[in-house]
Design a protein around this nucleic acid. Structure first.
Lengths: 345, 345
DNA sequence: TTGAAAGCGATACCAC
DNA sequence: GTGGTATCGCTTTCAA
């Protein structure tokens, strides 16, 4: 039970077996006789044996870490969205006896940071977070031949691995719903437009409007880091527009929180006076269904993305998936009570 | 330049030196002749050599990681405060070629999580974040004989390592300032009281009031997770009190953001109608001096705490500091424009 | 199905 | 000052 536990050699001696056999039994190799494996497993449990991850890494040539560098894009770095993603990745990796190597971007030699980490074998690959529309990290990692995956997407000549939701389609669907209810002036509260996902979301709204033969109004598009405060301020700007938009689309539940408050302050009813749809990243402590009114949302769990991204990156590192692998995570449009028909104004 | 770089053996052969000498030169051992060291350093730079951290770990018996487990206290886990701390720790570790091993608490066998990580040598010690008043993690880690440090404090029979600010004194000083301006009814917007720091802050206010012979009113103490929203809601509750408090103390800049908005909404002037002091954790994107009015704060950088905690933990692991080491990080009371005399009501 | 032994790539002790 | 080499604890051929 103590801190200092057995190593493989001691365990093998105790069992009167070779290290090789014990190792194989523990790692689930098929050639081990069932009786032997059970004996080994029992002894390992008894002594609380855990393989030394460092020795294992040295032998296998794999660190067992995936690298995540704090994104240094303002508005993303110290963002609950990022933390939620991290939690998912950490959770998934824990089940595989793997870890996150978390580091800060190096102002001085930014470009060598990734290479350094790989060379010193601190990580076997990277997750790129918060991609902007043309993200230089992708080309950098490709030129360095370092395995990586982007959470989200960016524009690139060469294919690369990514996991993302279909942001354009999500917002297109949300807008379509609003349009179906008779809305024609739809405002958007969105993250800064240089982020790829934010750009796509605006695009989705635009497509829905165009498909319905409605005008796209640049003046109704608002961008700010996704804070509660931002949602509040932008909503107040929206309410000053004349004629006033009859619906608002929010890029995040955190923005929506501020948005709803501003509407409340203005004495407006949702959905009586104005309809609201938000994208829900599923924070455990912000529940769309618990809000008043319960919020209609496009929903896709960021934590789930963290899990999936970590999983896929591992598979790429293992060579089980190609470096060009990509995947669109499905997304739900959850109808609740914040959308209604336009009231004749 | 490629991904696959030299190892020590190859570098030594190239230099026509022994691995031992090259290793010593690289690690700054004093006995190496200056000329030799320069040659080695030059070659290492030329080939982009970086020591394999895994091999080094195996040889030294140190993983080079400090473990951080996501705190599972509600209101702390997905909190920008925690992320800011992480950034500081990551930053400090980067300069030492060390890393954070970030993991999720294991619902099933919570107690064995720490031991598992130590046994598999994924980390050499832990940081305990978001301690509550009586935090069981301290006793657990002590019984497991695992090096650790608490960011903050908790009540414990046995001494343990911690780095903290003097929360009680900070809020005592802030309250003292307000009292000097004639305030007698001071409300507190604080994190949930089971957190040690939150409890201490209330204590500080209480002490200041008692020292001034003023009554402590339980009804003016408000606790919520430190969100903008929380600050807003609690401030509205405060404003309903009769007689209305003339000053508000906020536990975080994030709470203060909501507080100020509520005051603005209520048409109250700061400091004309009501004074405000907040504790400033120094988020890069929330600047007390940029607010209107510029906020008077007790200030201590969370990022700096992250750096210092990581540093101290390393020293404890190295045996350079005792496992009972602790330290109070100094804190400033920064006078700006949000405090004024009580207006005769 | 099991065992012996050769790495993996550093560090650090002991000679010289 | 520098070199030779055992060592860290595991995985993984190769043999038996």
């Amino acid at each position: 039970m103590a801190n200092k536990s057995m190593n493989l050699k001691q365990l093998a001696e105790h069992l009167d077996l070779s290290q090789a056999t014990v190792s194989r039994a523990l790692n689930g190799y098929p050639e081990i006789r069932e009786a032997t494996r059970n004996k080994v497993l029992a002894a390992a449990a008894e002594f609380g044996y855990r393989a030394n991850s460092i020795a294992r890494s040295l032998a296998t040539g794999r660190s067992g870490n995936i690298g995540i560098v704090f994104p240094d894009n303002f508005g993303m770095m110290f963002d609950p969205h990022f933390l939620e993603f991290l939690a998912g990745a950490a959770e998934m990796l824990s089940t595989r006896d793997m870890s996150i190597n978390l580091s800060m971007p190096d102002r001085n030699h930014e470009s060598s940071k990734y290479a350094d980490i790989i060379r010193s074998q601190l990580a076997d690959g990277f997750v790129v977070n918060g991609p902007v529309r043309h993200d230089s990290r992708v080309a950098l990692l490709q030129s360095l031949k370092i395995p990586f995956i982007v959470h989200g997407r960016t524009e690139s000549e060469v294919p690369f691995a990514w996991v993302d939701i279909d942001n354009a389609s999500a917002f297109q669907r949300a807008a379509h719903l609003l349009i179906g209810f008779g809305h024609r002036r739809i405002a958007l509260i969105n993250a800064p437009k240089h982020f790829h996902f934010a750009f796509q979301r605006e695009l989705g709204l635009k497509q829905a409007l165009e498909a319905a033969g409605l005008p796209f109004e640049e003046g109704l598009m608002f961008n700010e880091p996704q804070t509660e405060d931002g949602g509040y301020r932008l909503t107040n700007l929206i309410l000053q527009k004349n004629p006033r938009p009859t619906a608002i689309l929010c890029g995040s539940m955190i923005l929506a929180l501020g948005c709803l408050r501003a509407l409340r302050d203005a004495g407006l009813e949702v959905p009586g006076d104005i309809s609201v749809i938000a994208h829900d990243d599923v924070f455990p402590y912000i529940r769309a269904e618990a809000m008043r009114p319960a919020l209609t949302t496009t929903r896709s769990s960021l934590r789930e993305h963290g899990r999936r991204v970590a999983e896929v990156l591992n598979d790429i590192i293992d060579g089980k998936l190609p470096a060009s692998y990509h995947e669109i995570v499905p997304l739900e449009l959850v109808l609740r009570d914040s959308v209604g028909p336009v009231t004749p104004g």
